[in-house]
Design a protein around this nucleic acid. Structure first.
Length: 212
DNA sequence: CGCCAGGGCCATA
DNA sequence: TATGGCCATGGC
């Protein structure tokens, strides 16, 4: 396949800078990362709106399980996710709650801590690192997995293999990681999801055109 | 009506 | 390590 940077440049030239993780605060990014697990983003927006602008780790811990479940109900899996939200909130506050202090520590350490939290797996951990803490940890999601089935990776296709491949093939830069992830999602939504709609795809000439 | 969306946990082999 | 069942809502 082509150099990863080449693919990135092509996508960037075609779609431009996509900023698709809208959030008022870093904590809202964390909440969104939990709520969006296997869930449409429109449902996450509904759930976040139901916090009524009062969204903090303290608030989440103060709410009863039932109250929290009722607020996030539109995001689905609300019984599990209410526990997950309380777990990340406890982690955050147990370390002082200062996002800047937290993010100033070694990335691998933060990632390991995140993975130790109930409800935080690889993708959620990387989303929090990249979009909430602004640290260079590449996010691999369902779109990314499908994407690299079109451009097979020699190393393999497990989560960590795809992640390592992307990080090795791009400058270690938060903006680039964020943009590339957004570009992959946008391209995947428009082209290789339900049907093979190659016309108009900026990568049509490079793609293996493998049925997904 | 059925499908599935920006996963993760847990039990089982 | 690798499947498979489970969790739940809203949009199409």
């Amino acid at each position: 396949m082509q150099k990863l940077e080449t693919i990135y440049e092509i996508l960037l030239a075609h779609y431009g800078d996509l900023e698709w993780w809208p959030a008022e605060t870093a904590f809202e990014v964390i909440v969104g990362a939990i709520l969006t697990q296997n869930t449409a983003w429109t449902n996450v927006e509904k759930a976040i709106a139901r916090f009524g602008g009062d969204l903090s780790a303290e608030r989440i811990l103060a709410l009863s399980p039932e109250e929290l479940q009722e607020i996030i109900r539109p995001a689905g899996f609300f019984r599990q996710k209410s526990q997950y939200l309380k777990a990340v909130s406890e982690w955050l506050l147990s370390l002082g709650g200062d996002m800047d202090m937290l993010s100033s520590r070694p990335l691998p350490q933060i990632r390991a801590e995140l993975l130790g939290i109930r409800g935080v797996g690889n993708e959620t951990a990387d989303s929090i690192l990249l979009y909430a803490f602004q640290l260079p940890s590449f996010v691999v999601d369902a779109y990314t997995m499908r994407f690299f089935r079109r451009f097979p990776i020699p190393a393999g296709e497990t989560y960590m293999e795809v992640k390592a491949f992307c990080e090795a093939g791009l400058p270690r830069d938060v903006e680039i990681y964020q943009h590339f992830h957004a570009l992959i999602v946008q391209n995947g939504k428009e082209h290789c999801r339900k049907q093979m709609s190659c016309p108009g795809c900026p990568l049509a000439e490079l793609c293996l055109k493998t049925a997904l």
